[in-house]
Structure formats: C-alpha cells, structure tokens
Design a protein around this nucleic acid. Sequence first.
DNA 1: TTATTAAGATACTTTATAAAGATAAAATAT
DNA 2: ATATTTTATCTTTATAAAGTATCTTAATAA
Lengths: 228, 228
Amino acid sequence: MPVTQNIKVAVDAVVFGYTSKEGLSVLLIKRNIEPFKNSWALPGGLVGDHESLEEAIQRELREETGVNITYLEQLYSFGQPERDPRNRVISITYYGLVRPDAFVVKAATDASDVNWFNIKKLPALAFDHTTIISVARERLKSKMLYQPVGFELLEEKFPFSELEKLYLAVLDRPIDRRNFKKKITKYGFLEETTEKQALEGAGRPGNLFRFNEEKYYQLQKEGISFEI
Amino acid sequence: MPVTQNIKVAVDAVVFGYTSKEGLSVLLIKRNIEPFKNSWALPGGLVGDHESLEEAIQRELREETGVNITYLEQLYSFGQPERDPRNRVISITYYGLVRPDAFVVKAATDASDVNWFNIKKLPALAFDHTTIISVARERLKSKMLYQPVGFELLEEKFPFSELEKLYLAVLDRPIDRRNFKKKITKYGFLEETTEKQALEGAGRPGNLFRFNEEKYYQLQKEGISFEI
DNA sequence: TTATTAAGATACTTTATAAAGATAAAATAT
DNA sequence: ATATTTTATCTTTATAAAGTATCTTAATAA
C-alpha cells in the first residue's frame, strides 16, 4: 500500500441539450491550456479540497459555460493512468440536461470557446472525452426508458410530437406513436393542456402537454414505475 | 480553480456471496488502524500512482481477503468532504460477485478479521460504508433483471430452484416460477443437462442447469437482451 | 370561395405475447 | 397405500403490440 499518493481528482460533465431542429447536442469548451491546447473538451476541472463532487462540477459548469442545468447525475469514474499525458488525473464524470432556452447554439462567434455540437458531428476531443460522451449517451438512452428525464430537455409545455422526436433522437430508433402514447399517458404524469401547438406547416395541430412532477413522485412512492 | 489539491483516492468493494442456506451476504474486514479501528468495513485502500482503478481494487481484495472474484464492476464514487473524519478521501467503489466455494462463512475463528455477513444482518460499519452497500444492493437488483450476472453467484451446475431462490433473495420479492422459467429459458443461454439434482428431502428432483456464456455473447451480438 | 389533398392526431380492431390458473408427474414421508 | 412436496406442462385470461380506419386542420388548386 502506498504511503504517499500523487493523484489529482477532476470532475467533468457531459451536458446534453436538444431541439427538434438541432437534434441531441453536447456542450463543449475549447481548451486554452496544455495539454490538448485548442482542442475541444468536456467542461470540468479539479475538485477543491473542501467542496463535494457535485459542488465542484456545478461550479465548473457555472465558471466555464454559464448554462443552467436542470438535471445532473453522476456517470462513471475514469482512472486509466495514461488518460492524461502529464499527470495522473482521475476524472469523476457527470451528465446533465438543459432546457432548450439554455441550449443556444453558436451563441457568440465561431471562434467562441464554448459551443454546442450535434452528437453525431462531434469534433476530435481531448483526453478520453469521446469515450466519456459515448458512455453518457448510452446512460441517457437506457435512463429514458424507465425514468422521466426526457422532460428536462423540453420546454415546460410541448406538443406530443416533440416528445416523440426527442425519444427518436436519443434512442436512435423508430418510435411507435400509438403505443408510445398509450404507455406514457396511462400513468397520468403527462398532463394534456387545452392549448394548441403553434403551427409550422400543414397538419392538424395537437394539444400541448406538460410533465406533472408531483404526480410522478406520488407514483414513485406507490412503487409504480413506467416503461417505454 | 485550486492550484494544489490535497485529496486522496481510494477504492472499496462490495463483494457479494450467496448460498440458499446463508442467503445473500457481503464480505467485510475488521479495521486494525484508525479511524474506525476495530469497526467492520468494506475491503479497499488507496490507489497506487501507476495502477488503474481496477488493478487497485483487485490488488486490495487479494491482499485483504484472498477471495476469488468472478465478476467486478464499478459502482459509484463517493466524495463528501466529511466522509473520512481525518483526511479528504474520495472512494471509487466497485461491486463484485463470488461463487459459493469462495464464500466460506466464518472461515477461521470468530475473532478473524475477514468475514461474511448476511445482507440483512450487517454490523455497524466504518465511514459511509452502509450507504455504499445499499447502493450496491440496488445496483445488483436492477442488473439481475436484464443481465445474467446472477450465474456468477452459483455453482457451474445448479437446479432451477437455486436460481429461483437467488432471484428471490436478491430482488427481495416473490418470483413466479412458471413465467420466470419461460422468460429465462426462451433465449437458450440456460442449458438443461441430463443430470439430476442431489436430493435433500421430499419432492421430485429436477435436472441441473448450466449457463452457456458463448450462447449469451452470441445473443448480445445480435442485439437480443433478456428481461425478467 | 370552395373543394381537394396532405400532414398529422386519434380511435378502434386484430393479433401476439405475457401473466395467472389449473393439473399432472416424480420423488419422499407417514 | 396415501399424503406431501417439489417439478413440469398445459390452458385460460389479461395486456401489449401491430394493423386499419377516421378525424381535424392547413395548404393547394379549381
């Protein structure tokens, strides 16, 4: 057993955003220090001596990106000795979700150091961050099948087709609208409002839906969980 | 961002063992150093500067317990600043499974420093290890519903009732034998041998079953996954 | 302006699959 | 022998998936 240890601890986050136009996207920052200077990377940084891991990643996201996270969960810890070419750094990773209003694509100039990238068009990334993103994606995929995390990626009120498109984008496979609707409405946590969706193109406009958090918690307490 | 960091990195493991007689059990060691001297705790220790996290936990398990792990997977990372009363230590935890032959209850004397404890009769534990065990248990529970990890806790050949009892013990809820058998046999990775189980008491003796790893991998490649 | 068509939403129907019910078979115990 | 215990199979019922048709609205054409 080693008496002294020379390992640093970092936190990094895979932040997902979504709009039906842009698809599922990930928030990246351009590194301005070595190693991997000028490469795109996940937001993150070293953990402070007196802050929790959650506090650390929230602080880094605030400092580096300013986005407003609506959902955050620990993903996995990556600790291969060679993952950082300079020092031994273990990264404890998180994945987060933001609402469309926080998901402003190409906010400033193209030379900006913070940007969103479609999940299918990622640039070359620093360290093992490509691996981390694919692990996060798989996690989000499986999570969405039995927990209502998807709503954290949508506006408060949304047409049903938006929810369907989101599931399509994340799961990367076709969704059966009829049965999908039956499954997800039978529990009652998805409320139908009387408001109609703003029209874009032809077709009958549908009502807007809203996720009722309280009803979902109630179901959880009763041990009822949904499935897609 | 801190320029220097004073955080240590440890790995700890929740190792599960099972027999129908003893039930689902966890491997613990008695600490012989402060803090929590003489308390029971999870096996684990500090990560070496040049070893991976997996190598670290395998080394610690070998050194501290000598058990032969058949399955090991990362669980979660615990990093509350106060979880160790002396230093800041972040623990990256794993959970593992062993076969019944490695699961020798009360191996040496009662004063031994390594022992198995039934999951429902755990002693007071050091640090946040009680929390870690409950997280591990929930993980094992949900994992067993869609991955064949349970077989790592059984002998190579086992009567179907053993598998049923294992699921009962881990899931902590009744199992419908008829449908359970249909579900788990329809994929073909559970092979029925012609050998009959050794009889203990009344009842019709059943054939022994065996998990066919290759067939399972084949199914995985085809994208077929099972469900309980 | 009015009919027609296209896009999307919704309801109803059939088919497939899973859950629950019931019975039979093989062994031990009395 | 007869009851009891456990395994195995067959049948019925419930639920979910897939198929089909209808309704509502906007865009387009007459």
